[in-house]
Write a protein that binds this DNA or RNA. Sequence first.
DNA 1: GAGTGGTCTAGACCACCCT
DNA 2: GGGTGGTCTAGACCACTCC
Lengths: 247, 247
Amino acid sequence: MNVILHEAVRQELEQRVESGNYKSGTMLPSTAALAREFGVSAITIKRVLRDLQTSGVLRSVAGLGTFVRERRRFVRNLDFSLNSLDDANRLGIPARVEPISISREYILDPQLAEFAAAPKDKPMICIRKAIIAQAEKIMHDTTYVSIDLDDETIDEFSRRLVMEVLAERGLEFTSSRIMIDAAPGPPEVCQVFSLPRGYPVLRRLYKLTTASEDQFVAGMAQSPFDRLACTTEIDLAHRADACLRQR
Amino acid sequence: MNVILHEAVRQELEQRVESGNYKSGTMLPSTAALAREFGVSAITIKRVLRDLQTSGVLRSVAGLGTFVRERRRFVRNLDFSLNSLDDANRLGIPARVEPISISREYILDPQLAEFAAAPKDKPMICIRKAIIAQAEKIMHDTTYVSIDLDDETIDEFSRRLVMEVLAERGLEFTSSRIMIDAAPGPPEVCQVFSLPRGYPVLRRLYKLTTASEDQFVAGMAQSPFDRLACTTEIDLAHRADACLRQR
DNA sequence: GAGTGGTCTAGACCACCCT
DNA sequence: GGGTGGTCTAGACCACTCC
């Protein structure tokens, strides 16, 4: 037993969720009831519940209650790129896009800006959207495009995947450089997923290469940690030398 | 300006860190001083400071003060596997291993257990260690090995990388299946890195394949989100079909 | 001993949801 | 109206670090 009160309560609640005592999706007793049960103050309970929200165990709705968060995670193979929503649907996973915004701006995220080495001479087309699979939001995507396009094409971005639309317009993508990291969810993303600030998020920064040097397509896909994971395979028999560098 | 007090204070403090007003590594004013400055209660300030710790912006040491967290991140290319500490040293990055524990146990983490499909007939050798690069802990690794080995070999695990030791003993690894995801840092990991619970962590689950079916080597590497990122490249010209599946 | 952050408490008000 | 979580406050005690 831990000496720290909120830690002890936390472990007990986590255990109840894990053991199925509190079942997935169901409502927990109210903070007042828990405070009585554990013999601690209501504010200590509130702190624990808040901590368990940022760990993805619980989910609270003001005025409604606190619930056990449902886990449903998708796994995406990095080697195969998902290029169209039709592909997903063909695989039996109903997927669609929910547009958030289309605007002209520069890359805000400093990590993405450095990774993609974006042109700084003029603002790019910035498409933000949420990707939904099986009625569940699983991804928040921000794509930056610096190519002259007609309004009709830009309009199409809000209904389908950017790569899909551009490929139809004749753009040939040769390769994609990817950086995968984790991060505390930024405000925009947490809002879309109804998550508390700082919720761990899996990010995939990507920079596409086309035949032409001046066609710039890059972006960042962000998913709550319990909604998406990535897989890949490495051939060790013909491996190259080590590669670890700073920054 | 936001109506929520702690959110407004948070944004102001974040801005001061970003603008360099509070410089990296330096100490912030005390909670009492900040409470006076913002005209809010001390407990509100404490909440904000705690939130900014889980977002990786600040770092507090009880009895010492609150500091701006220094960011130093390594980037690891997935296609090239880092097989020995000598490799890293040759690249000009002084790296070493700090053993945490060697024991015999079953895989605890449910996600890793499912991913690796571990044999359940007997407990495996479990090696836990921290990997340090440039005097900074950047990785927490847990490796499970189910191979009969002499004590001398097992002893060697605490000084060098598991793959390195096994390769010298004649094991030939053909490929590595990898799953990358994010997660709130578990207690063991947060303790090693002196991080608050729930700090976003980048995880890499790996399962190695050897010539023999019954040689089981798998594990999980976890890094604080601001210490490590992974890169890779995808060939889009010869891409296979889409691959997105649930769980 | 003085200063720091970490923990815990009691009590209050608000916005929200459901009936 | 009665229940819920979210916010904010004042005040207290402790463990820790540094001088």
